[in-house]
Simulated assay, not measured.
Amino acid sequence: MTVETIASHRCFEGEQLRLKHRADSLDCDMHFSLYLPPAARGGDVPLLYWLSGLTCSDENFVQKAGAQRYAAEHGVAIVAPDTSPRGEGVPDDPEGAWDFGLGAGFYVNATEAPWDRHYRMYDYLTEELPALLAEQFPVDTSRAAIFGHSMGGHGALVIALRNPARFQSVSAFAPIVAPSQCPWGEKALGNYLGPDRENWKNYDTCALIEAGALQLPMLVDQGEADNFLEEQLKTALLEQVCSRTGYEATIRRQPGYDHSYFFISSFIGSHIAFHARALEQSLAED
């Protein structure tokens, strides 16, 4: 697989890269950003996957979150893929809305035309991108964790819960925890997956936990001043299903914080430390 380097920046003695490649699973060219800490010069390092939210690209997180400082300290790499397929021929919301189509892939494998040709972000993130990273960069994809924000928080939780053997931990900022029960999710899942709501459960965090998902270390931060909290994010539903099923998760409600990257940057250090501890613990147990 050919990977083109679009940009490279020295950052906290490591390297922040922006890269481009042809994604077979999405049938389009894709960009992703990758931070390699200074420890990567000495061998493979653990990998954190970051999934961004609606309207974002691979660049928002690496430019706004301030994560590189903490990744360098803990010796972990962070990969930030784009949030949807893009390019000529990739369909978008017919009405040009920001909550569906380009920039809003919802990290699913679409089954409905015309979305099913390109919108296969789940396969891209669980199969194609990890294989590329393991082949071409000094990262250990067997020691991995995943986190994200909003739509990306939904994606991180779902991917981790469906693949518990592949991730040592999962965390999220203001995630969409029950897309089957909110307007953003109903629009996206209805279009990408069709009208049968049973099929939506494979991409619904609360439904997966209710169905008996295996335990993983889980951390969720939710700002209490988030304008999307009640209608779209529905953190209370996650709290309820975890309590009902005995699923252990640390869910922190943060007073005064909204949905922005100011919120993310305030707590990104604790999330990276959380994942670093889980990765170290798994290594000690091996």
Rank of each mutant, 00 (worst) to 15 (best):
Pro255Cys: 07
Ile146Arg: 01
Glu4Gly: 07
Ile176Gln: 15
Ala213His: 01
Glu248Ile: 06
Ile176Gly: 06
Ile146Pro: 12
Ala104Ile: 06
Ile272Leu: 14
Ala113Asn: 08
Gly75Asn: 06
Asp196His: 13
His149Thr: 12
Gln215Val: 07
Tyr247Val: 09
Val220Thr: 07
Leu157Val: 02
Met151Ile: 02
Val220Asp: 10
Ala39Phe: 09
Ile78Lys: 04
Pro179Ala: 08
Tyr107Glu: 05
Trp115Gly: 04
Val62Ile: 13
Pro85Thr: 07
Arg86Phe: 15
Tyr203Ala: 09
Gly96Phe: 08
Cys11Glu: 14
Ala278Asn: 08
Asn60Gly: 13
Val220Gln: 05
Ser260Val: 01
Pro195His: 15
Glu59Arg: 12
Leu34Met: 05
Val45Glu: 01
Ala39Met: 03
Ala97Ser: 15
Ala156Phe: 13
Ala145Trp: 04
Ser84Asp: 08
Thr235Arg: 03
Phe173Glu: 01
Asn202Pro: 11
Gly66Tyr: 04
Asn227Trp: 14
Asp221Ser: 09
Asp258Ala: 04
Tyr119Arg: 04
Pro183Trp: 10
Ser266Glu: 11
His9Ala: 14
Gln240Ala: 15
Asn163Leu: 03
Gln16Lys: 12
Asn202Met: 11
Phe274Val: 00
Pro38Asn: 10
Gly42Tyr: 08
Ser171Glu: 03
Gly212Pro: 09
Ala67Gln: 03
Gly153Asp: 02
Gly269Val: 02
Leu208Trp: 05
Glu95Tyr: 11
Ile78Pro: 00
Ala213Thr: 03
Tyr257Ser: 10
Met1Leu: 11
Leu279Gly: 11
Ala23Gln: 01
Ala172Asp: 01
Ile268Met: 15
Pro195Ile: 08
Leu47Val: 13
Ala80Arg: 01
Gly246Glu: 04
Gly152Ser: 09
Val3Ala: 08
Glu15Met: 12
Phe61Glu: 05
Gln254Leu: 10
Trp200Glu: 08
Leu125Cys: 14
Leu161Tyr: 08
Phe267Gln: 00
Ile209Cys: 03
Arg41Ser: 14
Asp116Tyr: 10
Gln136Val: 00
Asp204Glu: 05
Arg277Leu: 09
Ala144Phe: 05
Val3Arg: 00
Pro195Cys: 09
Ala40Lys: 02
Gly269Gln: 01
Thr83Lys: 09
Arg22Phe: 15
Asn202Gly: 15
Gln16Phe: 02
Tyr70Glu: 07
Ala160Gln: 06
Leu133Trp: 10
Tyr124Arg: 00
Glu112Cys: 12
Leu193Ser: 07
Leu189Met: 11
Asp258Met: 00
Gly87Arg: 09
Pro175Gln: 00
Asp99Ile: 10
Gln215Asp: 07
Ser84Phe: 13
Glu239Ile: 01
Ala165Asp: 15
Glu127Cys: 09
Ala110Val: 07
Leu157Cys: 12
Leu237Cys: 05
Leu129Pro: 07
Phe106Leu: 13
Leu47Cys: 06
Ile146Tyr: 10
Asp123Trp: 11
Arg166Trp: 04
Val220Lys: 00
Leu133Ile: 02
Ile78Gly: 04
Gln222Asn: 01
Arg10Ile: 10
Ser84Tyr: 12
Arg143Glu: 12
Arg143Ser: 12
Tyr247Gln: 02
Glu285Val: 06
Asn199Arg: 15
Gln136Thr: 08
Thr111Val: 14
Ser243Ile: 00
Ala278Arg: 02
Cys28Asn: 10
Gly246Arg: 02
Ser52Phe: 09
Gly66Met: 02
Asn227Val: 03
Ala207Tyr: 01
Tyr124Ala: 05
Val79Tyr: 07
Glu127Tyr: 04
Ile251Leu: 06
Ser169Cys: 03
Leu47His: 06
Leu132Phe: 04
Glu15Trp: 02
